[in-house]
Design a protein around this nucleic acid. Structure first.
Lengths: 194, 194
DNA sequence: CCCACCTGAGAACTGTCGTTCTCATACGGT
DNA sequence: ACCGTATGAGAACGACAGTTCTCAGGTGGG
């Protein structure tokens, strides 16, 4: 029992690097064993099947991803600037050498049709992201519909950045979001002046 | 040799339905054999390996997808309306019962890291889509940067629609595109009046 | 009519992978 | 020091999938 947490963390670290970097089905348990230096026996004690390891990988990645985003966004004071800060954070993520798109979109495409737990994890992750944007948009006093539009820009930027192998889509998306933000301010001025 | 084309078409039809619907790695050659009613021997004469079948699937899907889009878009007369017609077409696609996101995004997530041909097919498809939007935007006399923003909205809508299992993102994206289009018209009026 | 060739159906081969098992060994409590 | 338990390393097992092979049957030309 002792030392279980380090082993568990090492397994999840290895699983995340491999599953995210190459796709779930391209990675065997042996490879996770080698990368984590945790014996197969222990690995299967910690995660009774590959499927459960995949779920744990997605759960942890969801939490960490959203925490990292929130950390950078909330360094910004102005509510409007916080919305745009989302795209600055995305730019940094896209520029990371191991960036390969959104792990949830990738897993969904690979396994969503055959593994309901993966489809559900992707759905929950995207819904949480959207809800977070909804809070940022509400704090900035913008119409709720803006959140969905900003979410689409962010998700489009993730896939475009992955496929084109460039961080540039974050800039494009930021500029589009800025225009939408301005337009929503204009609406607001027109509809509810003051 | 005789009857080769029907067999080839049947194989590609089966491959497309299965690869798109469930992901490439979840589908075996036996299943394609059964679905297409083409013997394994003939199948391997037509496509010497699964990899080449996957590439043929992506090539044909790219062409057909962009043709179907262009067909609906070009039914619209007004250059500005054509840009928005892209999202109406997306809405129809998303609402199809077998819709499961963008086949290229899905394949990229599944195989992009391990199969360069798949990564390249996805890149080429997205670039062609982006170039098409570039033409629509140019025809409407809008700034070129609008094309990239519209592309991000479209790609974001594809993944959001797949993961949420809803066609609604097409509507959200259309509305965002409409605002960007209007804003670009305002810019144009401000920068180059008349 | 006969033979060379091609085809279809599916068995067989090969490698891989998820999972379990073996077994020698190290450890902890008495 | 002794024994039961748990561990690690890796072999083994079973299923599966990509690819090739076998073989019986059909077809077209001489």
């Amino acid at each position: 029992m002792r030392d279980q947490e380090p082993a568990r963390a090492r397994v999840l670290d290895a699983a995340e690097a491999l599953f995210y970097g190459r796709g779930v089905q391209s990675v065997g348990m042996d490879e996770i064993r080698n990368a984590s230096q945790v014996s197969l026996k222990r690995l299967y004690q910690l995660f009774p099947s590959k499927g459960e390891l995949v779920e744990a990988y997605l759960r942890r990645r969801d939490i960490r991803w959203r925490e990292a985003l929130a950390r950078q966004v909330e360094a910004e004071e102005d509510p409007g600037a916080r919305i745009l800060a989302v795209f600055d954070w995305l730019h940094g993520w896209f520029a990371a050498p191991d960036f390969r798109g959104c792990g949830f979109i990738n897993s969904f495409g690979e396994l969503g049709a055959t593994t309901p737990a993966v489809a559900e994890a992707a759905r929950a992750h995207k819904e949480a992201f959207r809800a977070y944007l909804g809070r940022l948009v509400a704090d900035a006093g913008r119409p709720a519909a803006l959140a969905g539009q900003v979410a689409l820009l962010a998700e489009g930027a993730m896939t475009a950045a992955a496929i084109r192998g460039s961080a540039e889509p974050a800039r494009e998306a930021r500029e589009a979001a800025r225009v939408l933000l301005e337009a929503s301010a204009a609406d607001r001025r027109a509809v509810a002046p003051g």
